[in-house]
Write a protein that binds this DNA or RNA. Sequence first.
DNA 1: GTCTATATCCGGATAGAC
DNA 2: GTCTATCCGGATATAGAC
Lengths: 194, 194
Amino acid sequence: MAGSKGDTRERIARAAGTLFRRQGYSATGLQQIAAESRTRIGSIYHFFPGKDALAEDVVRTGGAAYGAMVLALLENGPDDPVEALGAAFAQAADDLAASDYADACPIATIALEVASTNDPLRRATADVFTAWLDALASWCRRIVTDPDAAHDLATAILTSLEGAFILSRALRDPAPLLAAGRSLTRLATAMRTD
Amino acid sequence: MAGSKGDTRERIARAAGTLFRRQGYSATGLQQIAAESRTRIGSIYHFFPGKDALAEDVVRTGGAAYGAMVLALLENGPDDPVEALGAAFAQAADDLAASDYADACPIATIALEVASTNDPLRRATADVFTAWLDALASWCRRIVTDPDAAHDLATAILTSLEGAFILSRALRDPAPLLAAGRSLTRLATAMRTD
DNA sequence: GTCTATATCCGGATAGAC
DNA sequence: GTCTATCCGGATATAGAC
Protein backbone atom coordinates (compact mmCIF):
# COMPACT_ATOMS: atom_id res chain seq x y z
CA MET A 1 0.00 0.00 0.00
CA ALA A 2 2.59 2.55 1.01
CA GLY A 3 5.67 3.07 -1.09
CA SER A 4 4.11 2.63 -4.47
CA LYS A 5 6.39 3.72 -7.25
CA GLY A 6 4.48 6.81 -8.21
CA ASP A 7 4.32 8.19 -4.67
CA THR A 8 3.80 11.94 -4.95
CA ARG A 9 6.03 12.93 -2.08
CA GLU A 10 8.89 10.95 -3.51
CA ARG A 11 8.37 12.34 -7.00
CA ILE A 12 8.62 15.84 -5.55
CA ALA A 13 11.77 15.05 -3.59
CA ARG A 14 13.43 13.40 -6.56
CA ALA A 15 12.63 16.28 -8.92
CA ALA A 16 13.86 18.79 -6.36
CA GLY A 17 17.07 16.84 -5.90
CA THR A 18 17.76 16.72 -9.62
CA LEU A 19 17.13 20.43 -10.08
CA PHE A 20 19.08 21.51 -7.01
CA ARG A 21 21.99 19.41 -8.15
CA ARG A 22 22.06 20.88 -11.64
CA GLN A 23 21.09 24.51 -11.06
CA GLY A 24 21.57 25.08 -7.36
CA TYR A 25 19.15 25.93 -4.60
CA SER A 26 18.14 29.53 -5.22
CA ALA A 27 17.89 29.25 -8.98
CA THR A 28 15.29 26.48 -8.63
CA GLY A 29 11.70 27.58 -8.10
CA LEU A 30 8.87 25.58 -6.58
CA GLN A 31 7.00 26.11 -9.82
CA GLN A 32 9.72 24.28 -11.70
CA ILE A 33 9.80 21.47 -9.14
CA ALA A 34 6.03 21.09 -9.45
CA ALA A 35 6.24 20.94 -13.23
CA GLU A 36 9.09 18.44 -13.21
CA SER A 37 7.30 16.18 -10.72
CA ARG A 38 3.92 16.56 -12.44
CA THR A 39 2.18 18.00 -9.41
CA ARG A 40 1.10 21.45 -8.23
CA ILE A 41 2.64 23.88 -5.80
CA GLY A 42 -0.16 23.10 -3.38
CA SER A 43 0.96 19.47 -3.22
CA ILE A 44 4.49 20.49 -2.37
CA TYR A 45 3.17 22.49 0.57
CA HIS A 46 1.02 19.56 1.59
CA PHE A 47 4.11 17.39 2.09
CA PHE A 48 6.72 19.98 3.10
CA PRO A 49 6.38 23.08 5.28
CA GLY A 50 8.39 25.17 2.80
CA LYS A 51 11.29 25.27 0.41
CA ASP A 52 13.96 25.12 3.11
CA ALA A 53 12.44 22.02 4.67
CA LEU A 54 12.17 20.37 1.26
CA ALA A 55 15.83 21.12 0.62
CA GLU A 56 16.89 19.74 3.97
CA ASP A 57 15.03 16.52 3.28
CA VAL A 58 16.61 16.29 -0.15
CA VAL A 59 20.10 16.92 1.22
CA ARG A 60 19.85 14.38 4.02
CA THR A 61 18.13 11.50 2.26
CA GLY A 62 19.71 12.13 -1.13
CA GLY A 63 23.10 12.51 0.50
CA ALA A 64 22.77 9.24 2.36
CA ALA A 65 21.75 7.44 -0.81
CA TYR A 66 24.65 8.86 -2.80
CA GLY A 67 27.15 7.90 -0.10
CA ALA A 68 25.83 4.37 -0.06
CA MET A 69 26.13 4.18 -3.83
CA VAL A 70 29.74 5.37 -3.87
CA LEU A 71 30.71 2.98 -1.11
CA ALA A 72 29.07 0.09 -2.94
CA LEU A 73 31.01 1.09 -6.04
CA LEU A 74 34.27 0.85 -4.08
CA GLU A 75 33.37 -2.44 -2.44
CA ASN A 76 32.17 -4.13 -5.61
CA GLY A 77 35.17 -2.94 -7.61
CA PRO A 78 38.56 -4.60 -8.08
CA ASP A 79 39.84 -6.64 -5.13
CA ASP A 80 42.87 -4.38 -4.76
CA PRO A 81 41.50 -1.30 -2.95
CA VAL A 82 43.98 1.04 -4.65
CA GLU A 83 42.79 -0.19 -8.03
CA ALA A 84 39.19 0.15 -6.88
CA LEU A 85 39.87 3.79 -6.14
CA GLY A 86 41.09 4.49 -9.65
CA ALA A 87 38.18 2.56 -11.12
CA ALA A 88 35.69 4.57 -9.08
CA PHE A 89 37.05 7.87 -10.40
CA ALA A 90 36.97 6.54 -13.95
CA GLN A 91 33.35 5.50 -13.39
CA ALA A 92 32.53 8.94 -12.02
CA ALA A 93 34.04 10.50 -15.13
CA ASP A 94 31.96 8.24 -17.37
CA ASP A 95 28.75 8.96 -15.48
CA LEU A 96 29.33 12.69 -15.51
CA ALA A 97 29.98 12.78 -19.23
CA ALA A 98 26.92 10.56 -19.82
CA SER A 99 24.72 13.13 -18.06
CA ASP A 100 26.20 15.88 -20.26
CA TYR A 101 28.18 17.16 -17.26
CA ALA A 102 25.06 17.83 -15.23
CA ASP A 103 24.89 15.24 -12.46
CA ALA A 104 27.89 15.42 -10.19
CA CYS A 105 27.71 15.70 -6.39
CA PRO A 106 24.09 16.04 -5.22
CA ILE A 107 24.86 18.49 -2.42
CA ALA A 108 27.99 20.44 -3.38
CA THR A 109 26.22 23.35 -5.09
CA ILE A 110 23.74 23.70 -2.24
CA ALA A 111 26.56 23.46 0.30
CA LEU A 112 28.42 26.41 -1.22
CA GLU A 113 25.27 28.47 -1.62
CA VAL A 114 24.07 28.11 1.96
CA ALA A 115 27.36 27.89 3.87
CA SER A 116 27.21 31.54 4.95
CA THR A 117 23.52 32.29 4.67
CA ASN A 118 21.34 29.45 5.99
CA ASP A 119 22.58 27.66 9.06
CA PRO A 120 20.04 24.79 9.25
CA LEU A 121 20.77 23.85 5.64
CA ARG A 122 24.50 24.33 6.21
CA ARG A 123 24.31 21.89 9.09
CA ALA A 124 22.50 19.36 6.92
CA THR A 125 25.30 19.46 4.34
CA ALA A 126 27.91 19.25 7.12
CA ASP A 127 26.22 16.16 8.58
CA VAL A 128 26.18 14.47 5.20
CA PHE A 129 29.84 15.26 4.51
CA THR A 130 30.81 13.98 7.96
CA ALA A 131 28.94 10.71 7.42
CA TRP A 132 30.65 10.26 4.05
CA LEU A 133 34.06 10.91 5.61
CA ASP A 134 33.45 8.38 8.37
CA ALA A 135 32.31 5.69 5.95
CA LEU A 136 35.21 6.39 3.60
CA ALA A 137 37.75 6.39 6.42
CA SER A 138 36.50 3.00 7.54
CA TRP A 139 36.89 1.66 3.99
CA CYS A 140 40.38 3.22 3.74
CA ARG A 141 41.65 1.00 6.51
CA ARG A 142 42.00 -1.64 3.84
CA ILE A 143 44.87 0.50 2.61
CA VAL A 144 46.28 2.09 5.75
CA THR A 145 45.79 0.59 9.19
CA ASP A 146 46.38 3.74 11.23
CA PRO A 147 42.99 5.40 11.86
CA ASP A 148 44.28 8.96 11.58
CA ALA A 149 46.07 8.21 8.33
CA ALA A 150 42.92 6.49 7.04
CA HIS A 151 40.89 9.60 7.86
CA ASP A 152 43.41 11.80 6.06
CA LEU A 153 43.21 9.54 3.02
CA ALA A 154 39.41 9.65 3.15
CA THR A 155 39.55 13.45 3.25
CA ALA A 156 41.91 13.47 0.28
CA ILE A 157 39.55 11.23 -1.68
CA LEU A 158 36.47 13.32 -0.97
CA THR A 159 38.10 16.72 -1.50
CA SER A 160 39.69 15.55 -4.75
CA LEU A 161 36.38 14.19 -5.98
CA GLU A 162 34.47 17.36 -5.12
CA GLY A 163 37.09 19.63 -6.64
CA ALA A 164 37.40 17.50 -9.76
CA PHE A 165 33.61 17.59 -10.16
CA ILE A 166 33.76 21.39 -10.25
CA LEU A 167 36.54 21.47 -12.84
CA SER A 168 35.09 18.71 -15.02
CA ARG A 169 31.67 20.36 -15.08
CA ALA A 170 33.09 23.80 -15.86
CA LEU A 171 35.45 22.50 -18.55
CA ARG A 172 32.99 19.91 -19.83
CA ASP A 173 35.93 17.53 -19.83
CA PRO A 174 36.51 14.30 -17.89
CA ALA A 175 40.26 15.02 -17.68
CA PRO A 176 40.28 16.59 -14.19
CA LEU A 177 38.42 13.60 -12.74
CA LEU A 178 40.80 11.18 -14.42
CA ALA A 179 43.87 13.13 -13.32
CA ALA A 180 42.54 13.28 -9.76
CA GLY A 181 42.07 9.51 -9.86
CA ARG A 182 45.66 9.00 -11.00
CA SER A 183 47.03 11.24 -8.26
CA LEU A 184 44.90 9.54 -5.67
CA THR A 185 46.09 6.06 -6.56
CA ARG A 186 49.66 7.39 -6.39
CA LEU A 187 48.99 8.86 -2.96
CA ALA A 188 47.27 5.71 -1.71
CA THR A 189 50.17 3.60 -2.92
CA ALA A 190 52.65 5.84 -1.12
CA MET A 191 50.60 5.63 2.10
CA ARG A 192 49.99 1.89 1.85
CA THR A 193 51.00 -0.21 4.85
CA ASP A 194 51.62 -3.83 3.98
CA MET B 1 42.33 61.30 -13.24
CA ALA B 2 41.18 57.80 -14.03
CA GLY B 3 41.45 55.00 -11.49
CA SER B 4 40.69 56.96 -8.36
CA LYS B 5 40.11 54.73 -5.37
CA GLY B 6 36.40 55.36 -5.08
CA ASP B 7 35.67 54.58 -8.71
CA THR B 8 32.02 53.62 -8.97
CA ARG B 9 32.47 50.88 -11.51
CA GLU B 10 35.08 49.22 -9.37
CA ARG B 11 33.01 49.52 -6.22
CA ILE B 12 30.17 47.75 -8.01
CA ALA B 13 32.41 44.98 -9.30
CA ARG B 14 34.02 44.43 -5.92
CA ALA B 15 30.69 44.31 -4.08
CA ALA B 16 29.30 41.91 -6.67
CA GLY B 17 32.37 39.69 -6.36
CA THR B 18 32.08 39.51 -2.59
CA LEU B 19 28.38 38.69 -2.67
CA PHE B 20 28.64 36.14 -5.49
CA ARG B 21 31.46 34.43 -3.65
CA ARG B 22 29.54 34.17 -0.37
CA GLN B 23 25.96 33.58 -1.52
CA GLY B 24 26.25 32.51 -5.12
CA TYR B 25 25.04 34.08 -8.33
CA SER B 26 21.28 33.65 -8.32
CA ALA B 27 20.81 34.43 -4.63
CA THR B 28 22.41 37.84 -5.13
CA GLY B 29 20.17 40.61 -6.41
CA LEU B 30 21.20 43.81 -8.14
CA GLN B 31 19.45 45.66 -5.34
CA GLN B 32 21.80 44.12 -2.83
CA ILE B 33 24.84 44.87 -4.98
CA ALA B 34 23.72 48.49 -5.28
CA ALA B 35 23.29 48.78 -1.52
CA GLU B 36 26.63 47.16 -0.75
CA SER B 37 28.46 49.42 -3.22
CA ARG B 38 26.55 52.55 -2.16
CA THR B 39 25.12 53.22 -5.61
CA ARG B 40 21.79 52.74 -7.35
CA ILE B 41 20.58 50.11 -9.75
CA GLY B 42 20.68 52.69 -12.51
CA SER B 43 24.42 53.08 -12.02
CA ILE B 44 24.94 49.34 -12.38
CA TYR B 45 23.15 49.44 -15.72
CA HIS B 46 25.20 52.44 -16.73
CA PHE B 47 28.42 50.42 -16.43
CA PHE B 48 27.20 46.91 -17.28
CA PRO B 49 24.62 45.76 -19.85
CA GLY B 50 23.04 43.39 -17.34
CA LYS B 51 23.60 40.95 -14.49
CA ASP B 52 25.19 38.28 -16.68
CA ALA B 53 27.74 40.72 -18.09
CA LEU B 54 28.55 41.98 -14.61
CA ALA B 55 29.10 38.42 -13.44
CA GLU B 56 31.33 37.61 -16.39
CA ASP B 57 33.48 40.65 -15.65
CA VAL B 58 33.68 39.68 -11.99
CA VAL B 59 34.62 36.09 -12.83
CA ARG B 60 37.32 37.00 -15.33
CA THR B 61 39.01 39.90 -13.56
CA GLY B 62 38.46 38.57 -10.05
CA GLY B 63 39.63 35.14 -11.14
CA ALA B 64 42.83 36.51 -12.64
CA ALA B 65 43.56 38.50 -9.49
CA TYR B 66 43.00 35.51 -7.24
CA GLY B 67 45.23 33.30 -9.35
CA ALA B 68 48.00 35.89 -9.22
CA MET B 69 47.66 36.10 -5.45
CA VAL B 70 47.89 32.35 -4.95
CA LEU B 71 50.90 32.08 -7.22
CA ALA B 72 52.63 34.92 -5.37
CA LEU B 73 51.91 33.09 -2.13
CA LEU B 74 53.65 30.00 -3.48
CA GLU B 75 56.62 31.91 -4.86
CA ASN B 76 57.18 34.02 -1.77
CA GLY B 77 56.86 31.02 0.54
CA PRO B 78 59.57 28.64 1.77
CA ASP B 79 62.38 27.92 -0.69
CA ASP B 80 61.50 24.24 -0.79
CA PRO B 81 58.47 24.10 -3.13
CA VAL B 82 56.97 21.11 -1.31
CA GLU B 83 57.10 23.05 1.93
CA ALA B 84 55.66 26.08 0.18
CA LEU B 85 52.70 23.95 -0.85
CA GLY B 86 51.92 22.96 2.72
CA ALA B 87 52.37 26.54 3.88
CA ALA B 88 49.95 27.80 1.24
CA PHE B 89 47.21 25.42 2.39
CA ALA B 90 47.80 26.43 6.01
CA GLN B 91 47.51 30.06 4.96
CA ALA B 92 44.28 29.31 3.10
CA ALA B 93 42.89 27.67 6.23
CA ASP B 94 43.79 30.72 8.33
CA ASP B 95 42.29 33.16 5.86
CA LEU B 96 39.08 31.17 5.55
CA ALA B 97 38.61 30.98 9.31
CA ALA B 98 39.41 34.70 9.62
CA SER B 99 36.55 35.50 7.23
CA ASP B 100 34.21 33.34 9.33
CA TYR B 101 34.27 30.69 6.59
CA ALA B 102 32.83 33.05 4.00
CA ASP B 103 35.61 33.91 1.55
CA ALA B 104 36.94 30.83 -0.20
CA CYS B 105 37.26 30.45 -3.98
CA PRO B 106 35.82 33.50 -5.76
CA ILE B 107 34.32 31.54 -8.65
CA ALA B 108 33.54 28.02 -7.40
CA THR B 109 29.94 28.69 -6.36
CA ILE B 110 29.18 30.49 -9.61
CA ALA B 111 30.88 27.73 -11.59
CA LEU B 112 28.62 25.04 -10.12
CA GLU B 113 25.50 27.16 -10.49
CA VAL B 114 25.99 28.00 -14.15
CA ALA B 115 27.73 24.86 -15.44
CA SER B 116 24.53 23.45 -16.93
CA THR B 117 22.43 26.58 -17.38
CA ASN B 118 24.44 29.53 -18.70
CA ASP B 119 27.05 28.76 -21.30
CA PRO B 120 28.76 32.17 -21.59
CA LEU B 121 29.29 32.28 -17.85
CA ARG B 122 30.31 28.63 -17.82
CA ARG B 123 32.97 29.42 -20.41
CA ALA B 124 34.24 32.30 -18.29
CA THR B 125 34.75 29.99 -15.31
CA ALA B 126 36.37 27.39 -17.55
CA ASP B 127 38.81 29.95 -18.93
CA VAL B 128 39.78 31.04 -15.43
CA PHE B 129 40.29 27.46 -14.24
CA THR B 130 42.39 26.69 -17.32
CA ALA B 131 44.59 29.73 -16.73
CA TRP B 132 45.08 28.71 -13.10
CA LEU B 133 46.00 25.18 -14.12
CA ASP B 134 48.55 26.40 -16.65
CA ALA B 135 50.20 28.76 -14.16
CA LEU B 136 50.23 26.10 -11.45
CA ALA B 137 51.64 23.48 -13.80
CA SER B 138 54.45 25.81 -14.72
CA TRP B 139 55.23 26.36 -11.03
CA CYS B 140 55.04 22.61 -10.38
CA ARG B 141 58.01 22.00 -12.64
CA ARG B 142 60.11 22.99 -9.67
CA ILE B 143 59.00 19.68 -8.21
CA VAL B 144 58.58 17.42 -11.24
CA THR B 145 60.35 18.06 -14.52
CA ASP B 146 58.04 16.07 -16.76
CA PRO B 147 55.38 18.46 -18.14
CA ASP B 148 52.55 15.92 -18.05
CA ALA B 149 53.35 14.96 -14.48
CA ALA B 150 53.53 18.62 -13.53
CA HIS B 151 50.10 19.18 -15.04
CA ASP B 152 48.72 16.23 -13.09
CA LEU B 153 50.19 17.63 -9.90
CA ALA B 154 48.71 21.05 -10.67
CA THR B 155 45.31 19.43 -11.18
CA ALA B 156 45.67 17.60 -7.88
CA ILE B 157 46.52 20.85 -6.10
CA LEU B 158 43.59 22.77 -7.54
CA THR B 159 40.99 20.03 -7.13
CA SER B 160 42.11 19.39 -3.55
CA LEU B 161 41.93 23.08 -2.74
CA GLU B 162 38.47 23.49 -4.27
CA GLY B 163 37.09 20.38 -2.59
CA ALA B 164 38.64 21.28 0.75
CA PHE B 165 37.09 24.74 0.50
CA ILE B 166 33.65 23.14 0.18
CA LEU B 167 34.17 20.87 3.18
CA SER B 168 35.79 23.51 5.39
CA ARG B 169 33.02 26.00 4.68
CA ALA B 170 30.25 23.44 5.30
CA LEU B 171 31.85 22.10 8.48
CA ARG B 172 33.11 25.51 9.61
CA ASP B 173 36.37 23.75 10.38
CA PRO B 174 39.87 24.25 8.93
CA ALA B 175 40.62 20.52 9.28
CA PRO B 176 39.78 19.50 5.68
CA LEU B 177 42.08 22.21 4.28
CA LEU B 178 44.89 21.15 6.59
CA ALA B 179 44.41 17.47 5.82
CA ALA B 180 44.39 18.23 2.10
CA GLY B 181 47.63 20.14 2.54
CA ARG B 182 49.25 17.17 4.30
CA SER B 183 48.15 14.73 1.61
CA LEU B 184 49.36 17.05 -1.11
CA THR B 185 52.85 17.41 0.35
CA ARG B 186 52.96 13.63 0.64
CA LEU B 187 51.94 13.28 -3.00
CA ALA B 188 54.40 15.94 -4.16
CA THR B 189 57.19 14.25 -2.26
CA ALA B 190 56.38 10.91 -3.85
CA MET B 191 56.35 12.50 -7.33
CA ARG B 192 59.47 14.54 -6.79
CA THR B 193 62.30 14.15 -9.29
CA ASP B 194 65.66 15.15 -7.96
C1' DG C 1 -4.74 14.79 -0.96
C1' DT C 2 -5.15 17.72 -4.89
C1' DC C 3 -5.80 21.88 -7.25
C1' DT C 4 -7.00 26.94 -8.08
C1' DA C 5 -6.77 31.51 -6.89
C1' DT C 6 -4.55 34.93 -4.83
C1' DA C 7 -1.68 37.80 -1.55
C1' DT C 8 2.70 39.89 -1.08
C1' DC C 9 7.01 40.73 -2.33
C1' DC C 10 11.28 41.01 -5.03
C1' DG C 11 13.71 39.82 -9.34
C1' DG C 12 15.89 42.05 -13.73
C1' DA C 13 15.33 45.51 -16.83
C1' DT C 14 14.00 50.17 -19.11
C1' DA C 15 12.88 55.18 -19.80
C1' DG C 16 13.75 59.50 -18.90
C1' DA C 17 14.43 63.64 -15.67
C1' DC C 18 18.27 66.10 -13.98
C1' DG D 1 26.95 59.86 -14.79
C1' DT D 2 23.33 59.54 -11.28
C1' DC D 3 18.86 58.71 -9.62
C1' DT D 4 13.67 57.84 -9.63
C1' DA D 5 9.74 55.69 -11.27
C1' DT D 6 7.87 51.96 -13.30
C1' DC D 7 6.97 47.66 -16.14
C1' DC D 8 6.49 42.88 -16.02
C1' DG D 9 7.31 38.47 -14.56
C1' DG D 10 8.19 35.12 -11.14
C1' DA D 11 9.24 34.12 -6.38
C1' DT D 12 7.36 31.94 -1.80
C1' DA D 13 3.55 31.24 0.66
C1' DT D 14 -1.52 30.94 2.12
C1' DA D 15 -6.64 30.09 1.94
C1' DG D 16 -10.01 27.42 0.71
C1' DA D 17 -12.99 24.71 -2.79
C1' DC D 18 -13.51 20.02 -4.06
